[in-house]
Amino acid sequence: MMKCKQATQMLSEKLDRPLSTKEKINLAMHTAICSPCRQFGQQMETLRTLSQAYTKTKESDEK
């Protein structure tokens, strides 16, 4: 069974490479029962969205 330490690394690597089927299954089994890792996964997506917004939005600068 995958532990949080490996699960979080998979959740990060998911953003940089396609996971193998085996990795996906192990990860899904882990996140199904681990709510902190589910949060972590969502936050990884949020970090990406925020990074993309860094140079693009900031509409509040608009006069």
């Binding site: 890792c37 949060q39 969502q42 936050q43 949020t46 969205t49 925020l50 900031k58 509040s60």
Partner: peptide
């Protein structure tokens, strides 16, 4: 150290 829920992260992009 467990991740907590982030409240409405979408709103932050408009916040300096």
């Amino acid at each position: 150290e467990r991740p907590k829920k982030w409240d409405q992260p979408d709103h932050n992009v408009e916040n300096d």
